[in-house]
Design a protein around this nucleic acid. Structure first.
Lengths: 116, 116
DNA sequence: TCTCGTAATGTATGTTTGAATATAACGATG
DNA sequence: CATCGTTATATTCAAACATACATTACGAGA
């Protein structure tokens, strides 16, 4: 079996996390639902917090990761921009490549992590 | 110039961080000084917290990362075990290999992270 | 047996973080 | 122009976390 979630990777930006597991998962849900509130609900996260994470990402990069509209037929919504999707793809590739590159060391470490 | 600290890597163990930047730095200082309290002082961390990090590491792995003696001529001390040193080496190699493996994606992301 | 510096543990306080709640702004649609 | 669900923001509360401080345990050496 493949060792599940041994490696956690974050992209640092001035002491904060510009991109990490949580923000990426949130982006996936937003892309899927077209809504911050629906994404938050599915992740059992407060809307407030989800919005803050989105805002943090938008302020970390030189172009928006998520754009939103307010009002309208269904109250508005949010979309992951092409740039945001590129980030998601890049992050997925980083996960894959790093896990592969560090496989030997991770295996060594995992051998000595306590089970249960 | 080499981009400084873009990638932050943690080794996860049952929801907690078994190994990360802070714990590794602490191990380096303990190895250097032979003392948890001296390491804590140099890192401007409370002794209490440093001890807790050491304890967390020792409980994460199947063998101790740091061993300590109490009392005696100089009050005691702490040493990083051979296993602990192996972990430090493995972590350093992970840092190097992952940064190299993900260089392209990191470069892309870094291009769009806000400067200042 | 007293001293010394460190390990180990307890306690209290303050700061940060997140959850919960409330409310306003918004604009397509009927 | 009233309704609707969502974005956006403010406020309050509780919990988690870190820090600071205090205390005890320990054992070699004077």
């Amino acid at each position: 079996m493949m060792q599940a979630e041994l490696l956690k990777i974050r992209i640092n930006h001035q002491g904060n996390t510009a991109l990490g597991p949580g923000k990426i998962e949130l982006l996936q849900h937003i892309a899927q639902h077209g809504s911050i509130s629906a994404a938050a609900k599915q992740m059992r996260m407060s809307y407030r917090r989800a919005w803050e994470l989105v805002d943090m990402m938008n302020r970390s990069f030189d172009q928006p990761v998520v754009v939103s509209t307010t009002g309208g037929a269904h109250g508005g919504g949010a979309q992951v921009t092409a740039f945001g999707q590129a980030l998601m793809l890049a992050y997925a590739q980083i996960l894959q490549k790093t896990a592969q590159a560090a496989a030997d060391e991770l295996h060594l470490i995992n051998q000595h992590l306590k089970k249960i």
